[in-house]
Design a protein around this nucleic acid. Structure first.
Length: 609
RNA sequence: GGUGCGGUAGUUCAGUUUGGUUAGAAUACUAGCCUGUCACGCUAGGGGUCGCGAGUUCGAGCCUCGUCCGCACCGCCA
């Protein structure tokens, strides 16, 4: 991505010329020009009679030189400078005696004739360079200094370009950007709400939107047809590296569409973004059913930068992911396999070189509490084609040959096997192992992108905590028409017209075709355990609207922060947010949240417990 | 709500295993020297509530308990 040089020019409104050029644009071609620069002092090199000052702004670094021609007064001024002082320098562009190949302006310098210190600065608490010596916490406390660093600045520039290209694409396709309110009301289901007390309505609370979901559906009822909004959303849940309490969605909705229309429209948007921002032509997005994603990758957001798909060696519990019984390929004899309901394996190409110690370490990895496997069975295919495994004493070479063929393994490959009583749990464990092996084998480079649609999500998932079915997506998602009869007989197996876009194992967006029929919506609320009164109270506005001619509609929402993080190849979404919150949801720079005055509390009729 | 790791100079860290003299390094900062630096170089100097509190001990940066803070993860996140 290129940043356009700031077009500095004299205008009638800009009488005071702080600068005529930026610190990033001067080249050999400018030699002899008289220029004025302004910026921050990056570094000072005092060689006695000779002083160099690197001046930095958003656009780059330009060296100021104070040499033998400089007046005594100028040299003394230069001697008073410190890091991060704000200065204005006037002088002539000259070719350097010794050039710096590391920066674009490295061929020239400014022979300074006038220096004005516009502001002084304390010594910053960390170095303001590409690789800072400051820790995360410190840099967040002084985020305004952290943002002076070129890499953080570049992330924000990329984010700007990303949002800009989103607007360009959606505008070209007839979408209207419409703002929806931030003060709305609390919704059942979903995440915890951030709430805002209402002074004029004592004892009553607004809630900040977790997403503008219902509002955009109302816009469809209004006939707005194609809507989008780049909008802040709020969820009061615990944070992660890829999760912030306030985050930005690209929220979209269309009327008179089926799932196919949505997938194509937004596949087009992703293609546009990859092309415009990364110069990458991405192939047509493959579509994978949720059932296949779970069966072959153990995840609803598979990282498809690499293969290593699961092979089911046994499954005696047909479920939503694998609807058929798979007889064990192993004869009885090994208690652990005999007792397991599910046995799954991955084949790691060329990894038979793993030593006993490394395999023990992998075993420890899958036994960690957050993964929770009981153990790991491995089998190495040796150079002679024979299989050497950790279960040799239970099985014959012929048994292991069957395994090798089933896994499509060849000499030098390593087969890793997990098993257990619950297929879904083992799949999740195997998924963690697959990702770990993929990382170790260098198959997940950040600059390689693999995108896909995961489709046909289940409508519901069982909540142990609530002891009831919960909407997997949200309660406004429509079931697949052919599965509607199952709503009465087997709701857990009903599939939804819901879809996620997954990039490199990250869910960057998701959506669904909505229910536009008030009666069907009523039925879905019933299955979710709402009484008609509760449904009316919480979603009456939507149900009423649906009685006045709701068009068929659907849409999706992208997580802007996550998508930008992928493009910027970041580990954490915090790095593409100007002022992010920390792990505990605090803004350490503002020291928010904080207490409020008793007077405010009284006005709001709020008393602390 | 839970698990793990961490908190020592402005900053990044070592020191904690085995408690024991004046707590170190690098970098940053200050001063001096240096005519082509760009990780400048050389010399000297200043800089510490070892997160906080309690306990054990003749003695605690080090051991114990509690607590606060940070990071990663599990639960949670329609």
């Amino acid at each position: 991505m290129t940043v356009h040089p700031f077009p500095i020019r004299r205008t009638t409104y800009n009488i005071i010329m702080y600068r005529t050029k930026t610190c990033g644009e001067l080249r050999l071609a400018n030699i002899g020009e008289k220029v004025t620069l302004a910026g921050w002092v990056q570094s000072i090199h005092n060689l006695g009679a000779l002083t160099f000052v690197d001046l930095r702004d958003r656009y780059g670094i330009t060296q100021l030189a104070f040499n033998e021609d400089a007046s005594e007064e100028l040299r003394q001024q230069a001697g008073r400078l410190g890091r991060e002082f704000v200065v204005q320098a006037k002088g002539e562009v000259a070719e350097r005696y010794s050039k710096n190949k590391n920066i674009p302006t490295g061929d020239i310098e400014i022979l300074v004739t006038e220096l004005n210190i516009l502001n002084e600065s304390l010594t910053p608490p960390f170095t303001i360079e590409e690789e800072s010596d400051g820790g995360d916490d410190l840099r967040m406390k002084y985020r305004y200094l952290d943002l002076r660093r070129p890499n953080v600045r570049k992330n924000l520039e990329l984010r700007h370009k990303f949002a800009f290209e989103v607007r360009r694409y959606l505008d070209q396709h007839g979408f209207l950007e419409i703002e929806t309110p931030v003060l709305v009301n609390s919704t059942p289901e979903g995440a915890r709400d951030f709430v805002v007390p209402s002074r004029m309505n004592p004892g009553q609370f607004y809630a900040l939107p977790q997403s503008p979901q219902t509002l955009k559906q109302l816009l469809m009822v209004s006939g707005m047809d194609r809507y989008f909004q780049i909008v802040k959303c709020f969820r009061d849940e615990d944070l992660r590296a890829d999760r912030q309490p306030e985050f930005t969605q690209i929220d979209c909705e269309m009327s008179f569409v089926e799932q196919e229309d949505i997938l194509q429209m937004f596949e087009g948007m992703s293609r546009h973004l990859f092309k415009a921002l990364k110069g990458i032509d991405i192939p047509e997005l493959p579509r994978m059913t949720w059932a296949d994603a779970m069966k072959y990758y153990g995840s609803d957001k598979p990282d498809t930068r690499f293969g290593m798909k699961f092979v089911e060696l046994k499954n005696n519990q047909p479920d939503n992911a694998s609807r058929e019984i798979v007889e064990s390929i192993f004869p009885a004899g090994f208690q652990v396999f005999d007792d397991a309901a599910y046995i799954g394996a991955i084949c790691c190409e060329g990894q038979a070189v793993y030593s006993r110690k490394q395999l023990d370490e992998l075993t420890d990895f899958v036994k960690r509490p957050q993964i929770g496997a009981k153990g790991l069975v491995y089998a190495r295919v040796q150079e002679d084609g024979n299989v050497k495994s950790s279960v040799d004493k239970f099985y014959t070479p012929e048994n292991l040959e069957v395994l090798k063929e089933k896994m499509n393994a060849k000499a030098g490959d390593l087969i890793l096997i997990l098993c257990g009583p619950d297929a879904m749990k083992v799949r999740k464990q195997l998924s963690e192992l697959r990702l770990e092996m993929g990382s170790r084998m260098g198959l997940r480079p950040k600059n390689k992108y693999s995108c896909l649609w995961v489709i046909d999500f289940p409508m519901y998932e069982w909540s142990d905590e609530e002891q009831r079915l919960m909407a997997m997506h949200h309660p406004f998602t429509s079931p697949k028409p052919e599965d509607i009869p199952l709503l009465d007989t087997d709701p857990a197996s009903v599939r939804a017209n819901a879809y996620d876009m997954v990039v490199n194992g990250v869910e960057v967006g998701g959506g669904s075709i909505r229910i536009h029929d008030a009666k069907l919506q009523q039925k879905i609320f019933e299955i979710l355990g709402f009484t008609p009164e509760q449904a009316q109270q919480k979603f009456g506005f939507l149900m009423n609207a649906f009685k006045y001619g709701a068009p068929p509609h659907g849409g999706l929402a992208y997580g802007l922060d996550r998508f930008v993080s992928l493009f910027a190849e970041l580990d954490s979404i915090r790095d593409c947010i100007a002022f992010p919150k920390n792990n505990s949801g605090r803004d350490v720079m503002l020291d928010a949240p904080g207490p409020i005055d008793q007077k405010q509390m009284d006005e709001l009729c709020i008393r602390l417990k």
